[in-house]
């Protein structure tokens, strides 16, 4: 597999959210707006890339029996770094995402890539895999966030498209998250089949 397909597979073919159905909790919980979704996606991307790099560096040192706990500790360390830096530099976004930042640690995508890819491949390709998967996830979250924001409040990235009296508030609330994701997955399936 060339490095380019290694990078791009996360966007459509193996999109973590739409195709692999991983990382549902943050996808539903943080996408009240496109910006929040993007922020969550980028935080996850950082953890994915750094965890993939570190794990592929230490893969030969860690005995196979204790690899999962070791991976979890590595991931949790990077999550703590993200949590503390976001609290320091982006307090508003940090308050919006709240609980979901420490919960990146139990996001199946991160451990999934560590186990399925980084523990078997070189540092370089693990970094690219992490970046591709992370950006694919960010793209999915931003798209879901944008759909919910447009339908729910008539805005996207805080730019008003139509007055919010025509908007359906339910899309910003909890049920709208399920509806929007359900229909997006169905549309994505359709696009993937056509290709």
């Amino acid at each position: 597999m060339s490095q380019l397909t290694n990078f791009t597979k996360g966007f459509v073919k193996e999109n973590p959210l739409f195709v692999l159905l991983l990382g549902m909790c943050p996808a539903l919980g943080t996408t009240t707006s496109a910006l929040n979704g993007l922020g969550m996606g980028l935080a996850t991307t950082f953890v994915l890339v750094m965890a993939n790099i570190s794990i592929s560096m230490v893969k030969n040192v860690i005995p196979a029996k204790v690899r999962i706990p070791s991976f979890i500790v590595i991931i949790a360390s990077f999550v703590t770094i993200v949590d503390l830096s976001m609290a320091g530099f982006l307090p508003a976004l940090h308050a919006q995402l709240g609980l979901f930042i420490p919960l990146i640690v139990v996001n199946c995508i991160v451990l999934g890539r560590a186990e399925a890819f980084a523990s078997k491949n070189t540092i370089g390709s693990s970094a690219i895999d992490g970046l591709g998967m992370g950006l694919g996830f960010s793209f999915a979250l931003a798209l879901l966030g944008a759909v919910r924001e447009v339908l729910g409040s008539g805005k996207v990235f805080n730019i008003t498209l139509f007055p919010d009296k025509y908007a359906m508030l339910v899309f910003v609330l909890a049920p709208g998250a399920f509806f929007a994701l359900g229909y997006l997955i169905s549309i994505m399936n359709r696009i993937a089949k056509k290709n």
Binding site: V170, A174, P175, F178, F179, L181, G182, Y183, I185, S186
Partner: peptide, 19 residues
């Protein structure tokens, strides 16, 4: 296109609406 995950999510949405 709605089989599997999509319809499950839509049903979950209706349930969330009820809650």
């Amino acid at each position: 296109g709605m089989k599997g995950a999509p319809i499950a999510l839509v049903v979950a949405g209706i349930l969330a609406l009820a809650f």
